[in-house]
Design a protein around this nucleic acid. Sequence first.
DNA 1: ACAAATTAAGTCGTACGCGATATAATGTTG
DNA 2: CAACATTATATCGCGTACGACTTAATTTGT
Lengths: 144, 144
Amino acid sequence: MNDKYASLRLKNQLCFPLYAVSNLITRKYKPLLDELDLTYTQYIVMMVLWEENQVNEQFLCRTLCLKSNTLAPLLKKLEEKGYVRKEKDSSDERNLVITLTDAGVALKDRALSVPECIAREFHLTPEEAASLYKTLYKILDEDR
Amino acid sequence: MNDKYASLRLKNQLCFPLYAVSNLITRKYKPLLDELDLTYTQYIVMMVLWEENQVNEQFLCRTLCLKSNTLAPLLKKLEEKGYVRKEKDSSDERNLVITLTDAGVALKDRALSVPECIAREFHLTPEEAASLYKTLYKILDEDR
DNA sequence: ACAAATTAAGTCGTACGCGATATAATGTTG
DNA sequence: CAACATTATATCGCGTACGACTTAATTTGT
């Protein structure tokens, strides 16, 4: 059965399960992050800040593979929520330096239970998780 | 160095590369799908229709892991573009039956080059692709 | 030194994705 | 058979994502 359209079948796509799992994950995070008044994207921005303490927007763009036009309004919202502060870098006025407020720092402890809860929702073996992780980063790293 | 916050580090997350790769794929598809006047989500809806010829919205929701509030406006757009037809099922007026128009059928041949072009963009070994596919569907199938 | 190129943020318009909710048709149950 | 539950679709509001473009600051090339 030499089907010339085989490549167009949903079941023969890798992109579709990637897309569907990504949506699924965002849905799973939502109730947990609602408690912290964060969306998923806001959460990964906060994760970077909890590690780095101080970053510019450019660094966030590269680290999270997002564009300025996604991050700019998102950072404005995090500022309105009182989690981050934005100020111009005095040595280069183009740079936007983003730092955590006290409330932003305090959120880190309340976020500790989130990865735990998420891990309980998925049931991958350590090998599956490691292999998935490696392949995904291979794809991401090829795109620089 | 027993870091109590290790689980919050971006590099220790599986969700982040999944999210980033999903975004990356949508970006890679965009220029190809622009030629067909389709977005990525519209494209996977069309893929289902190219296989099934006739479906209801419910079937699309389950197959694509999307909600009615995403698909309803999207189907309206596909109808406006002239690719699909929507009509009520006479035996159950709640059911929306969706079929391809001639233009929708014709699009299938023009879409044939898309999976090819995408495959060229990513460089996974057959083993990596197979393992990725299997793990992603394990995650999706657990969520039914 | 100064016009041209580059870089960093941001704005605008379009299209998802989804929780909450609404509406209408069909099933069910006492 | 009438109240009630269930099911399928749709609407609303919010928050991303991103391409195209704009603005402002710095760097570069001659």
